[in-house]
Amino acid sequence: MNVLTINILNPKAEMLLENLADLQLIAIKSKKNNPFLQVVERLRKKNEGNIPSLEEITNEVEIVRAKK
C-alpha cells in the first residue's frame, strides 16, 4: 500500500477522489489540524525565497566552530 499526500487545486478533483473512495478503490483519511505544523508551514512560506546558499551555511558553521 502506498500513502500519498495530495494538494487539491480544483474542487472537481475532490469529488473524483470521493467517488474512488465510494468504490473502495482508495481510502481517504482527513488530517487533524496540528498547530505546530501550521506554524512550520507559515514560516516556510514566509522564507520561501530566502534560502541560504551552501557557502552561507558553511560560513555560519565556521563562525560557530571558531567560537568554540
Results as ranks from 00 to 15, higher is better:
I6C: 02
I6A: 10
N7M: 04
N7T: 02
N7H: 01
I8P: 05
I8T: 04
L9D: 09
N10P: 05
P11H: 00
A13W: 00
A13P: 00
A13T: 01
A13Y: 02
E14D: 06
E14I: 01
M15R: 07
L17M: 04
L17Y: 06
L17C: 01
E18D: 10
E18L: 05
E18V: 09
N19I: 09
N19K: 12
L20C: 03
A21Y: 03
A21H: 06
D22V: 02
Q24N: 12
Q24Y: 12
Q24M: 06
L25D: 00
L25V: 04
I26Y: 06
I26A: 06
A27N: 11
A27E: 12
I28T: 05
I28A: 03
I28R: 01
K29F: 04
K29H: 08
S30V: 07
S30Q: 10
K31E: 04
K32M: 10
K32R: 10
N33G: 06
P35C: 01
F36R: 09
F36I: 00
F36Q: 10
L37R: 08
Q38M: 11
Q38N: 11
V39D: 09
V39I: 12
V40E: 07
V40H: 07
E41N: 08
L43I: 07
L43N: 01
R44G: 01
R44N: 10
K46C: 01
N47C: 05
E48V: 13
I51E: 13
P52E: 06
P52T: 12
P52V: 11
S53I: 10
L54Y: 14
E55K: 14
E56S: 14
E56T: 14
I57K: 15
I57R: 13
